[in-house]
Simulated scan of single mutants.
Amino acid sequence: MTCTFCEIISKNLPARIVKETEETLAFLDIDPIQKGHVLVIPKRHVPDLTDMTDVEMNQVMTLCKEVMSSLRTAYNPDSISIIQNNGECMAFPHVHFHVVPRFTGDGFVMREPEITVSDEEMDRVARELEKNML
Rank of each mutant, 00 (worst) to 15 (best):
M110E: 05
V60A: 10
T50W: 08
R124H: 08
R16E: 13
E88M: 12
V67A: 00
S69H: 10
L134R: 14
T21F: 00
P113Y: 03
P113C: 02
T4C: 01
I8C: 10
G105E: 06
C64I: 12
E23R: 06
H37E: 03
E112Y: 09
V18E: 06
E66A: 14
H45T: 06
A15W: 03
E22K: 04
E56G: 07
M68G: 15
L13N: 12
M57E: 01
P77N: 10
F5C: 03
V109Y: 13
M90Y: 03
I8H: 10
E130L: 08
V125E: 05
M61Y: 12
R44T: 13
T53C: 05
T2F: 06
K19L: 12
L39H: 05
V117T: 13
H45K: 05
C6V: 11
M133D: 06
V46L: 11
K131V: 00
E130N: 09
V18L: 05
D123Y: 00
H98T: 05
Y75E: 14
V38C: 07
L49G: 00
T24A: 04
I115Q: 13
T24M: 00
L25H: 05
I33D: 03
R72Y: 09
T2D: 13
P47R: 10
C3V: 05
S118E: 07
L13Y: 12
H98N: 06
I30R: 14
C3E: 06
R111S: 12
F5Y: 10
V100A: 07
E130Y: 02
S118G: 08
H96S: 07
T116E: 15
L25V: 04
L28D: 03
V40E: 01
T62L: 10
E130H: 08
E114P: 03
L28Q: 08
A91T: 13
P113N: 09
V18Y: 04
K43Y: 01
V55R: 14
I30E: 12
R124G: 00
Q59G: 01
S69I: 07
I17C: 07
P93V: 11
I82G: 02
H37P: 03
C64N: 13
V40G: 04
E7P: 01
T2I: 13
K35C: 00
N76M: 10
L63C: 02
N12K: 15
D106T: 09
T53G: 07
R44I: 09
D123R: 08
S79P: 00
E121P: 01
F97T: 01
H94W: 06
Y75T: 12
E121A: 11
V55A: 14
K131S: 08
P47L: 05
I115N: 13
V18T: 10
L13P: 02
P93K: 12
P101M: 13
R16V: 06
T50I: 09
M57C: 09
E120I: 07
I41S: 01
G107R: 10
F97W: 14
I41D: 01
M68A: 13
A126Y: 01
G36Q: 06
F27A: 04
T24K: 00
T50P: 00
V109K: 15
E7W: 02
H37Y: 04
V40F: 02
D54N: 14
T116C: 11
P93C: 10
Y75R: 14
I8W: 09
M52K: 03
I33K: 14
I82D: 02
R16C: 01
